[in-house]
């Protein structure tokens, strides 16, 4: 069902990864992504993958969940790998089988590396959301983007909007599931017919969904107004972020990883 989407989902926990300052996690995730694009050879991927395994183990998030996160991109993965495989140049793998001439060592290498890179990219970014609640995440964004306030970017308001949007994703997913079930119970069919019929079949889902989103938005706006909410400069946070020793340690490890990758690039 629609609930199987794990991207952007948060798994509450008390692991060392969960406890990191959310700002650290945002910055280090960016650093990890950068390091993925710096890699040139197999050893670099090995280091990156090993790093990811350590993070997974530390976070105590079941491996099955991590694997399920890859499922939605399986198609992109196969597509990219196939293209890299076909358009490889250099020595063919089977030099004496003429119809397999397009299959080269170089193409195979590129295909595997590209697949690994995409997988690590997806796991790396989803790990930030697996281990950080949406509220913490937007708090981190607000804090990191605070300097932009000087050029009149409404950072607080933007992060509030993002918090609300993130907060309502699970609610709307739930709601969608319920509406789908209710229309199925009246014999609605979403799975057969051509593309136009299927698009039309979505109407009984989308209309109730949009109406309920508007209703929720109005209720939320009223509730915020009743509590005298206003954005602006003088708001203090209920939960104040503090960098701790573990954040320094994490930053050190991640930087070390990048250094090691660059070093491997140079020596090989």
């Amino acid at each position: 069902m629609i609930k199987d989407i794990t991207l952007g989902q948060y798994f509450p926990g008390a692991s060392p990864i969960h406890k990191l300052d959310p700002r650290t996690k945002v910055l280090l995730t960016i650093l990890y992504i950068v390091s993925l694009f710096v890699i040139r050879g197999g050893w670099g991927y090995f280091v990156s993958a090993a790093m990811m395994f350590v993070i997974i183990a530390l976070s105590r998030i079941p491996f099955g969940v991590v694997l399920r996160g890859i499922k939605p991109i399986l198609f992109v993965l196969l597509f990219t790998a196939t293209f890299n495989l076909i358009y490889g140049t250099g020595t063919p793998i089977f030099e004496d089988v003429s119809w397999l001439g397009w299959l080269t060592w170089n193409g195979l290498r590129n295909a595997v590396f590209m697949a690994v890179r995409i997988i690590l990219l997806v796991i790396g970014t989803s790990f930030m959301t697996y281990t950080t609640s949406p509220i913490m995440l937007t708090g981190a964004m607000e804090s990191l983007l605070a300097p932009l306030k000087w050029v009149k970017v409404p950072v607080h308001e933007l992060s509030m909007m993002m918090t609300i949007a993130l907060r309502f994703i699970p609610t709307l997913v739930d709601e969608t599931d319920k509406i789908i079930s209710a229309q199925k119970a009246r014999g609605a069919d979403f799975e057969t017919g051509n593309i136009f019929r299927r698009a039309k079949a979505l109407v009984p889902i989308l209309i109730p969904l949009i109406i309920s989103a508007f209703r929720r938005a109005e209720e939320l706006a009223d509730a915020m107004e009743c509590r005298c909410y206003h954005g602006g400069n003088d708001r203090t946070r209920y939960k104040v972020f503090h960098f701790a020793a573990r954040d320094a340690l994490a930053a050190l490890v991640m930087t070390g990883q990048l250094a090691l990758i660059i070093f491997l690039n140079v020596v090989t």
Binding site: E175, I179, P204, S212
Partner: peptide, 25 residues
């Protein structure tokens, strides 16, 4: 099956069309 809070599944322009959705299917 009538789900809980079924009023949130209404979607048609008129009451007639909404009740007719099931029989049409």
């Amino acid at each position: 099956l009538v789900f809980q809070y079924p009023e949130y599944q209404l979607f048609e322009e008129t009451v007639y069309k909404d009740i007719a959705f099931g029989p049409k299917n």
